[in-house]
Amino acid sequence: MFSVTYAQLNGWLTAFLWPFVRILALIATAPVLGNRSLPVRVKVGLGAFITIIVAPTLGAMPQVTVFSSDGVWIIANQFLIGIAMGLTMQIVFQAISATGDFVGLGMGLGFATFFDSQAASSSQVLSSYMNTIAMLVFLVIDGHLQMISALLATFQSVPISANVLGAPGWRTLANFGGTVFSAGLLLALPVVAALLITNLALGILNRAAPQIGVFQIGFPLTMLIGMLLLQLMIPNMIPFFMRLFDIGIDQMGRVAAGLR
């Protein structure tokens, strides 16, 4: 008669549950995979599928009962590791969204917002437009697979038994947040500079010939110039996006190294 002991059941459960929590935390917070339009069942199923493949390669787990205090603490650590990895790539996408915000404000489209299902809040039209292009590029270069591969590599650098609460990797993640402003502004700088020159020219024109009615032609003119420049920049934006994604993947490794 087939029988299973409590030790065997606990071993099977820990071998699946602890990696599953880390992988699912990444899927829930990472760009593209964590999109709110993706059903929760699909996310859980994807996490379980990856865990079933990866779990046999992780070796022996800590001899701890799953629902003991030590077991719950390990689950919390796995959750934090997955969250850290997902937020690292999320920062890259937020930098690209910030580009749309900067350009939209310069074009006078700061008021043009709609509900973004991914962020669960209102966002500018150009911000969502840039984010959509970034997602397409991310999928084309298999960025989602590279992101999962980077997470799986953390099982070697950050073992299941690691205590990551006081690790310096969180400082690395916080410092990487500055990329949102620096990279976003760098990407939007050509359009912002051109729109600034346009506004200065309109201001001079308004002083020289007030009867022209600069306020009537200023808004459509800045919008037209902004859209034309943005359209011309898109072919050059894609390599910049790819570079940002590579930086994000590398940063995931640095954050993981700091969580040891």
Rank of each mutant, 00 (worst) to 15 (best):
N163E: 11
A112P: 13
G169C: 00
M227D: 00
M135G: 07
A193Y: 05
R171L: 13
F16D: 11
S149T: 07
I75D: 04
T198V: 12
L259M: 05
I249Q: 01
G184D: 00
G143H: 03
F93I: 05
L145G: 07
G86K: 05
A257D: 11
I197T: 12
W73M: 05
Q118F: 01
G11L: 04
V164I: 06
L145Q: 10
M130G: 03
S37G: 13
A120E: 01
S117C: 09
F2T: 07
F155Y: 15
V125Q: 02
A183V: 06
S69K: 10
V32E: 10
S37P: 10
F102M: 06
L230Y: 05
K43E: 08
G213T: 00
G59I: 00
T132F: 09
A150K: 01
L165T: 15
L195H: 03
F93T: 07
I83M: 06
A194T: 03
G143M: 08
L151F: 06
Q156E: 13
I83A: 15
F219K: 15
L200P: 08
I197A: 08
N206W: 03
T51I: 07
L87I: 14
I148T: 07
F245P: 02
A95G: 01
L173C: 02
T5G: 11
T57M: 12
L126Q: 09
S123D: 14
L87C: 15
L33M: 11
R36G: 09
L80R: 02
L58H: 09
T29V: 13
L24C: 07
G218D: 03
M107Q: 11
G143P: 05
K43W: 10
P220G: 14
V4N: 00
L109V: 08
I74N: 06
A134W: 04
P56T: 08
I50Y: 10
I83K: 12
S157N: 12
V103R: 07
N236A: 10
P239Q: 11
V192N: 05
D250H: 09
A193V: 00
L232Q: 03
Q90F: 14
S121A: 15
N236H: 12
A167S: 09
T29I: 10
P168I: 07
A150F: 08
A193H: 07
V191D: 02
T154P: 06
P56S: 12
F241K: 02
P31S: 00
A25F: 05
L87N: 12
V66S: 06
P235T: 13
A84D: 08
L224S: 12
A48P: 02
L126P: 13
A55T: 02
Q231A: 02
M61T: 03
M107E: 14
I53E: 04
L46I: 02
S117F: 08
P210R: 08
L205S: 09
V103E: 01
G59S: 06
S3N: 11
G178D: 09
V137P: 02
G104F: 09
Q251D: 03
I75T: 06
T172S: 08
S128I: 14
I225Y: 12
M130S: 11
G177S: 04
A167I: 13
L187P: 02
M252A: 04
T88K: 05
R171Q: 12
Q231F: 14
L9I: 01
H144Q: 08
V44N: 07
